[in-house]
Every structure is written in C-alpha cells, then in structure tokens.
C-alpha cells in the first residue's frame, strides 16, 4: 500500500484498533475479581479526588447561569421564578454532565494517557505481558469501570452544587428569592431530565476513559510520544464527549 492510501485509511485503522481494544477489555471483564483492588484505586483517583475541582466548577457554572438568566429576563411580565425553571433543567440536562466531562477529560484523561503511555514507552506493559498478566485487564478495565461508575457520582455532586450555588447567588444578589427559584424549578421539573443527565454522565465516563486508555496504550516514540498521547487524549475525549452528547440528545429527547 502506498503512503497516501495508508494516510486515508488511518482513521479506520484507528477505529478498528480502538474497538478491538474494547473487545479485549470486555473479554477481560470476567477476570474483574482479580483486579478488584485496582478498580477501587482507580475509583478513588478518578472519582473521589476529582470531587473538589468538579464541585468548584459546578458552583461557578450554576451561579453564573443564574445571574445571566436573571440578566436576560428584562420583561416585567415574566415572574422571577422562571429563573429557577431555566437554571435547574439546564444544569440537570447539560451543564452538570458536560462541565464535569470537560474537567475530567483534562484531569482524568490526561492522567490515564500519561500513565499508560509511560508504561508503554518504558516497556512495563511488555513486562506485564511477559509475566503472564493480561495488561488490558490489569490496566484498562479498572480505569474504564471506575470511570463509568464514578462519573454519575460526580454528576450528582455537580448538579447539587450547581443548583445550590445558583440558589445561593440568586438569593444573595437579590435577583431571585430562594423560594421563588425552587417554586419555578418545581413547576417545570421533569424527572426524565435527571435520568437523562445520569445516563449522559455514564456515557461520558465511558468515552473519556476508553479514549484516553486507547491513546495511552498505543503510545509510541519516547517522552515526546507520551506528551503527544496526553494532549491527544484530552482533546479527543472532549470531541467525542460532545459528539456523544449530541447523539444522546438527538436520539433520546
């Protein structure tokens, strides 16, 4: 094959490699008991240690959404309780999951890619294989499982903090009293929004960890390759996260 043909086919090769890696990971799922400890370790790294930064980002996004919605409502005929009715669904549907996803694409995705990339270029992965350990089961499955399990937790944290921040800021800037905010939110609340947000966060957790594992696992080219893999992991995770967001919204809403 000529070099040009390979360049055209490169995305498909990458896609195929990604899904083969996923298939290997699924096969390794039955060995999950063996890597139990790893899973919990990753859950703490991915989930628990991300709570502060997620909470901070959510606090500000909720507060900003509230203030800006209040700023946009200039008509005296619209009750201020509408602010609650706008902020809560936007947080629950979109901001809670997407802001968390972006943060974790940077924080978790880069970390995973750097870890696996370094292990790859220092031939630790080869060493694991040589010792007879399933490297996919040992390295990738715990991270992806931890991502899928902990992302919804982070999503809930983000929603609670964002709505709390919105109510707090709205109340203390005098834009909307807390009672009005909650009354408006209750008026237009649909439980499916929350379920949908939870589902989104689950998918995002999977997308970010799987893409980052793929980028790290197939790193080449020494220290520079590790750097490149880290960057690509963060950027590609964000792109696929947005794509997944659109696909979910278009199919389920």
């Amino acid at each position: 094959m000529s070099a040009n043909t390979i360049r055209v086919l490169e995305p498909f090769i990458a896609l195929g490699r990604f899904f083969l890696l996923l298939a290997r990971a699924f096969r390794s799922l039955r060995e999950v008991a063996r890597y139990w400890k790893n899973i919990f370790e990753q859950m703490v790294h991915i989930g628990i240690e991300s709570i502060p930064i997620v909470a901070l980002a959510a606090l500000f996004s909720g507060a900003v959404t509230t203030v800006q919605t209040a700023h946009q409502l200039v008509s005296p005929f619209i009750p201020v309780s509408i602010i609650g009715a706008v902020v809560v669904p936007s947080v629950v549907l979109e901001l809670g999951a997407v802001v968390t996803g972006f943060l974790l694409a940077g924080r978790v995705g880069a970390r995973i890619a750097a870890e696996l990339g370094t292990m790859r270029v220092t031939e630790q992965i080869d060493a694991l294989e040589a010792m007879g350990l399933n490297s996919v089961g040992y390295l990738i499955v715990p991270r992806v499982v931890a991502g899928v399990l902990m992302f919804p937790v982070l999503y809930v944290v983000a929603c609670v903090v964002a709505i709390g921040g919105g109510i707090f800021v709205g109340h203390y800037t005098g834009e909307v009293p807390a009672g009005e905010f909650i009354a408006g939110a209750r008026e237009f609340f649909r439980p499916f929004d929350a379920t949908f947000g939870l589902l989104k966060s689950l998918v995002f957790g999977f997308v970010i960890t799987a893409v980052s594992c793929y980028k790290g696992y197939y790193t080449r080219g020494g220290a520079e390759g590790v750097g490149r893999a880290t960057t690509e992991a963060a950027v590609t995770s964000c792109v696929y996260l947005l794509l997944a967001d659109l696909v979910l919204a278009a199919t389920l809403l």
């Binding site: 809930v156 209750r186 929350a194």
Partner: peptide
C-alpha cells in the same frame, strides 16, 4: 442525593 433531589424538585 439523586433520589432526594429528584423527589424534591418533583
């Protein structure tokens, strides 16, 4: 928090 939050806003 999820269950209570949904019930709260419902």
């Amino acid at each position: 928090a999820f269950v209570l939050g949904v019930r709260y806003f419902k």
